[in-house]
Amino acid sequence: MLVISWWLHLKMLAVSAFEGVFQVIWPLFFATTAFLVYRQADDPQVMVYAGLGAAVMGIWSVIATTASGVLQRERWLGTLELLVASPTRFALILVPITTAMATLGLYSLGSTLLWGWLLFDISVPVADPFLFVVSVVASILSIALIGFLLSVSVVRYRTAWALGNLLEYPGWLLCGFLVPLTLFPTWAAWISYVLPPTWGMEAIRLSASGDSPWAQVLVCLGLGIVYGAVGALLSETVLRSARRHATLSLT
């Protein structure tokens, strides 16, 4: 059930991503801006910093926007009710949807890195490919779990989809994709410490430069699991509330 559902949702997401140029071009557009700005520094180290940052930023954008949009779309299509009416647990229904989003995020990561390499000649030297992949996977997983939590809230609150779009930009800053966290006031740094992508980003940078990223990977995954667990717990409550307030369908 998980594999087939994942594949079908990926099909849907992929089609919509290509149609709405949005999800694929958008991150590239911002990546380009970032590359152009950082090029002024004329320092290859800095370009690597920007290249990796832009890539993870792409994942964050793709997941934040699709996660909030995906169940809203189900509501519009009238399929949300059908999903709820099926005997499969709602949290389980969301797992393939979330992994499909994560896959799309991976695609965005690849395309941004490729873009940076082709157009700006940024080649990211990866000191330890294995650890690098581990860090990337941990980041994507944890971001996907945030996406899961987001999509759960959409079920009850019709306007929650706006939240995802709202989170997109602060996320860029707070997770240190492009600017070092040390530039922020302390309270902002605290927020960024509870966002798993911050740790994922750091793990990716550490592994690219050959340092050990394990601590960051663990924190990143741990936080992701917390978000996921909250989402799973919420899903039943939220569903009941949606049944009480009749927000499953618009009619």
Binding site: I4, S5, K11, V15, L77, E81, L82
Partner: peptide, 16 residues
């Protein structure tokens, strides 16, 4: 309403 517009009929049924 109630169909996945972007999927074909077979995939719609397969999913459910």
């Amino acid at each position: 309403r109630g169909l996945y517009e972007r999927l074909n009929a077979l995939d719609n049924l397969r999913y459910f």
